[in-house]
């Protein structure tokens, strides 16, 4: 990958990765550091896998591992995303933001990849390094927990 190719890849993926790091990590102040570290490791890895989507999955896998390292280093569970988004947007977004904050990190990762990124079960398994067969069950449970939280907020 040369510099112009990297820049194009970066422009196409950085916003998506930033949103993932923020919604799963829950701390805005760490997002840009982790984002830069994820791209740095991606470049150093000389990843030569298939096409654009393979690269994106690999990048998200690096980001997921960085989040785990961050939590392990801090020796605490991740803080829920209590910060409010900056721009005034749809009310549903605030509901989702708060509901995600009440979920476990593993649920957040799975839900975000499935519904925001549109990843298949196989892709989620690859990014999160879990068994493909267990994604279906884990995702079902995470979805049920999120639905309960969203329904609870509306009532």
């Amino acid at each position: 990958m040369d510099e112009p190719e990297f820049e194009s890849f970066y422009r196409a993926t950085a916003d998506r990765l930033r949103a993932y790091l923020y919604r799963v990590g829950g701390e805005r102040r760490i997002v840009d550091d982790l984002l830069q570290e994820a791209y740095f490791r991606f470049l150093r890895s000389k990843f030569a896998g298939g096409g654009e989507e393979d690269r994106v999955r690999y990048l998200f896998r690096i980001a997921t591992n960085l989040l785990k390292d961050h939590w392990a280093a801090a020796k605490r569970s991740p803080e829920p995303p209590v910060e409010r988004p900056h721009a005034g947007t749809a009310e549903t977004r605030l509901d989702l933001h708060a509901a995600l904050g009440a979920l476990k990190p593993a649920d957040r990762e799975m839900l975000w990849l499935a519904y925001a990124e549109g990843c298949s079960h196989a892709e989620i398994a690859e990014i999160l390094e879990v068994k493909r067969a267990s994604v279906r069950v884990l995702l079902f449970r995470a979805r049920a927990r999120l639905s309960a939280l969203l329904q609870g907020e509306k009532t």
Binding site: A14, R16, D32, Q36, A87, T89, L96, Y115, A116
Partner: peptide, 20 residues
């Protein structure tokens, strides 16, 4: 989820890819 992702606005610009 997709609306949430697409509507996210960040006060800071993205880090410079050339520096990375």
């Amino acid at each position: 989820f997709q609306r949430s992702r697409n509507e996210e606005r960040w006060p800071e610009p993205l880090p410079d890819p050339a520096a990375l």
